[in-house]
Design a protein around this nucleic acid. Structure first.
Length: 579
RNA sequence: GGUCCUGUGGUGCAGUUUGGAGUGCACGCCGGCCUGUCAAGCCGGAGGUCGCGGGUUCAAAUCCCGUCAGGACCGCCA
C-alpha cells in the first residue's frame, strides 16, 4: 500500500474506513458539497483524488464550493441509520476539530457533478477544474496504468527503450508534416516526427534487436474523435523475427494493459485475413461485438434482368425484425449510402406474402427465393442490398452495419482482432503506378512476389497487419523488406526510379547496404487503446490537455501569432490572408 | 475542401415547426430559516447583446443571407 501521508496530511479522504474509527486524521482537499443545518451543524464533503469523505463542522464556518481545506478531526462511525452505502467512506465521518482554509475559490464555471454533460469548450478552457472530476481523474489513472503495464511487458520481453529525435527531416510521404523553422539555416525546416518509423528501422541495423518506445507522434491532418495532432504510440521493432513473433510481443503488451485496467486478461487474440474482414464486416477494422454480418448475393443475380444488380458484386445485410423501420428512415439510409459512394440502396421487407419492395417486381421468383434462402430471412426481417464494385459494396454495407447496430463502447465486451494479409497496394495514382497501402518497405507475401509488375497487382498480399479493438484501429505493422533485390522490385513496381529512390530514401537504402537484419515491427495507438479501455468514445477524454477539432487549445489560446522580430530571426514572413 | 448537427441568465435544457412583451423548467449563485444531512429541505432574491453581422417585417430567439465557435462524419490520416 502506498503511503500517502505528507507533512500536511495523514490520509487521503477516500481511503478512510471503519477500521480508522478512533484515529485523529488531517485531510486536505476541495469542498465538494456542503449541507448546512443552521448555526451549529454543517456537513462538508471533502474531495481529493481518492474520493470523498463527510466532514462534520460547526455551521458557523463559511465554506464554499471548491474552497481548499485542511481539516483535522476524529474519525468516528456514523450514528444510527445515517451511514451512506453509496459512498466508499460512507460508514464513517470526520468530526472536525480544526479547519484551515488553504484557498478560497470562486464558484466553478460549471458543475463538477457527474450528471451534467457540460459543453466541451468550457471544460477545456477550465481544464484544471474539469480534471478534478472523478471521470477525468479515473481516465488519467487508466492512461497511466496502460503505459506502466506496457512498459513492464516490453521490458519483461527484453525490449530496450530507445528515444528518437523530435526534430527530424521532412519527407514527402504520408501525412502533412508539422514543421519547425531553422534559425541557423533560414529557409530550411525540421519536421516533427509523424512516427519514429525510419529511426526504429535504423536501430535494427544498429543491432538493437528488440526496440520499443512510448513515442509522441505528430501529424498535421484534420482531427476526429479518434485523432489529435499529437498522439502516443507504443512503437515496436524487432530483428530475426516473423510477423507472428511481433504480434505475440504486442499481444503481450496490450493484454497486460487491458488486464491492468479491467482486471481481466483478454486472452488469445483471434486473427482474420483482410479479405475476410472486408467480406464479412465491410471494414478493415471489424467491430465483432455484434452481428449484422454482410451476406454475398452476387451469385443469385448472375443472370439477372434487373439492371441495378448487373454489377460485379451484390452484398447486403439482414436486419432481424427490421421490417417495421419506417419508409422515412429507409429514405434517410438510402441518402447516406449515396453519400458513402453507392448508387443507391435496395430495401426489402419480408412479409407473410413474400418480399415487399419497390424493386420486387423486377426480380424473378427464383431470385426472390434465392435471397430469402441466402440471407436466412424470416418474416418481419428487413434486407438491405448494395450492388457495385466489390470494394464499394463492402464499404457501404460495412458503414450501414455500424449505423444500424454498433453498440456503445462500454457494451459487448472487448474484442481484439488481428487483421492480416493486407493488400500491398490500395489503388493506382494518376500515372498508373500502384499506391502502397502501408509503406514502400513493406514485405510482400512470399507466394505473391511473382505478381509484382504484373496485371493483377492489387491482389498482391503483404506481410502487413493491423490490430483492431471493438472497431477501432489500434495500430498496424509489417515485416520490412531487408533483401535488396526485393526492395528494388517493389520500388520498380511503384514506378520509383533508382535515382528518385536515392533522393527520397537514400539514407535508409544506404543503411540496407551495410548489413540489414530481417526485421518487423508494429505501432499501437495508446490514446485509442486507453479510450476503449476507459469506456470513452472520444480520445480527448483520455488526454489531459487536448485540442478541439479545429486544432485550437481553448486554455492557452494556441495557436497564436508571433511577433515580427521573432519571424525575422527565423527568416520568415507571413503572407496576407487569401482573398 | 465538403456534408450534417448545435449555439437561449453561471450550468443543463424547453421555447424556433406556425414571427406577437426575454416566457418556462432544473441545477448553481446571493440572503434568511433550520442540530443528522448526503443531488439536504423550506422561504426570498439577483442574474439575459437568445453566438455575431446584415436583411425581410408594423414586429425576429423564431424567417432569409452571411459569419464565428463547437461537434459527428466524408476527403485526408504512407
Amino acid at each position: 500500500m502506498t503511503d500517502y501521508s505528507t507533512s500536511m496530511r495523514t490520509d487521503r479522504c477516500g481511503d478512510l474506513r471503519i477500521d480508522d474509527v478512533g484515529r485523529q486524521v488531517t485531510l486536505c482537499g476541495w469542498v465538494d458539497r456542503r449541507r448546512e443545518h443552521g448555526e451549529h451543524l454543517a456537513f462538508v464533503d471533502l474531495r481529493d483524488r481518492s474520493g470523498v469523505i463527510q466532514v462534520v463542522v460547526d455551521g458557523a464556518h463559511d465554506l464554499r464550493s471548491e474552497y481548499v481545506l485542511q481539516v483535522t478531526g476524529d474519525v468516528r462511525e456514523r450514528p444510527d441509520e445515517s451511514a451512506n452505502d453509496n459512498l466508499a467512506t460512507g460508514a464513517v465521518e470526520v468530526e472536525a476539530t480544526e479547519v484551515v482554509v488553504l484557498a478560497t475559490a470562486e464558484p466553478p464555471p460549471f458543475p463538477l457533478d457527474e450528471r451534467t454533460e457540460v459543453d466541451e469548450v468550457l471544460r477545456l478552457r477550465h481544464r484544471y477544474v474539469d480534471l478534478r472530476r472523478p471521470r477525468m481523474q479515473r481516465n488519467l489513472e487508466v492512461r497511466a496504468r496502460v503505459t506502466a503495464a506496457i512498459r513492464g511487458a516490453m521490458e519483461e520481453q527484453g525490449f530496450v527503450e530507445v528515444e528518437t529525435p523530435m526534430l527530424v527531416a521532412s519527407t514527402p510521404e504520408g501525412a502533412r508534416d508539422f514543421v519547425v523553422p531553422s534559425r541557423k539555416e533560414p529557409g530550411s525546416f525540421y519536421a516533427l516526427p509523424q512516427s519514429p518509423q525510419i529511426f526504429k528501422q535504423l536501430t535494427m541495423m544498429g543491432g538493437v534487436d528488440r526496440y520499443y518506445q512510448i513515442a509522441r507522434c505528430l501529424r498535421d491532418e484534420d482531427l476526429r474523435a479518434d485523432r489529435q495532432f499529437e498522439f502516443m504510440q507504443l512503437d515496436v521493432e524487432a530483428s530475426f523475427v516473423t510477423g507472428e513473433d511481433v504480434r505475440t510481443f504486442v499481444a503481450h503488451a496490450v493484454g497486460a494493459a487491458a488486464e491492468a485496467v479491467t482486471g481481466d486478461h483478454p486472452g488469445e487474440i483471434r486473427s482474420m485475413s483482410w479479405r475476410e474482414a472486408m467480406d464479412r464486416f465491410g471494414s478493415d477494422k471489424p467491430d465483432v461485438r455484434f452481428g449484422l454480418e454482410l451476406v454475398d448475393a452476387t451469385e443469385i443475380f448472375a443472370d439477372t434482368g434487373f439492371r441495378a444488380f448487373q454489377t460485379p458484386c451484390v452484398k447486403g445485410i439482414r436486419v432481424p425484425d427490421g421490417a417495421d423501420i419506417s419508409r422515412n428512415r429507409l429514405d434517410e439510409l438510402t441518402g447516406e449510402c449515396k453519400r458513402w459512394g453507392a448508387k443507391g440502396l435496395v430495401w426489402m421487407r419480408l412479409t407473410e406474402d413474400g418480399l415487399n419492395s419497390p424493386v420486387a417486381k423486377f426480380l424473378s421468383d427464383d431470385e426472390q427465393a434465392g435471397l430469402v434462402a441466402k440471407f436466412e430471412a424470416r418474416v418481419g426481417d428487413l434486407l438491405l442490398l448494395v450492388a457495385d464494385e466489390w470494394s464499394t459494396a463492402c464499404h457501404v454495407c460495412g458503414l450501414l452495419r455500424l449505423e444500424l447496430g454498433r453498440p456503445p463502447i462500454t457494451e459487448g465486451g472487448r474484442h481484439f482482432v488481428w487483421v492480416t494479409d493486407f493488400p500491398l497496394f490500395e489503388g493506382f495514382d494518376e500515372a498508373g503506378n500502384p499506391i502502397p497501402a502501408h509503406h514502400p518497405f513493406t514485405m510482400p507475401h512470399e507466394e505473391d512476389l511473382g505478381m509484382l509488375g504484373g496485371d493483377d497487382q492489387l491482389a498482391i498480399r503483404s506481410l502487413a497487419y493491423d490490430l483492431v479493438l471493438n472497431g477501432w484501429e489500434l495500430g498496424s505493422g509489417s515485416v520490412r523488406i531487408h533483401r535488396r533485390e526485393v526492395q528494388e522490385q517493389v520500388l520498380a513496381a511503384l514506378g520509383i526510379s533508382p535515382d528518385e529512390a536515392r533522393a527520397r530514401f537514400g539514407f535508409l537504402l544506404d543503411a540496407f547496404r551495410y548489413g540489414s537484419p530481417p526485421h518487423a515491427g508494429f505501432a499501437v495507438g495508446l490514446d485509442r487503446l486507453t479510450a476503449v479501455l476507459a469506456g470513452e468514445e472520444n480520445i480527448r477524454e483520455v488526454i489531459a490537455f487536448p485540442k478541439t477539432q479545429s486544432g485550437a487549445d481553448p486554455l492557452t489560446g494556441a495557436p497564436t501569432p508571433i511577433d515580427d522580430r521573432h519571424l525575422a530571426e527565423l527568416g520568415l514572413g507571413v503572407l496576407p490572408p487569401p482573398g
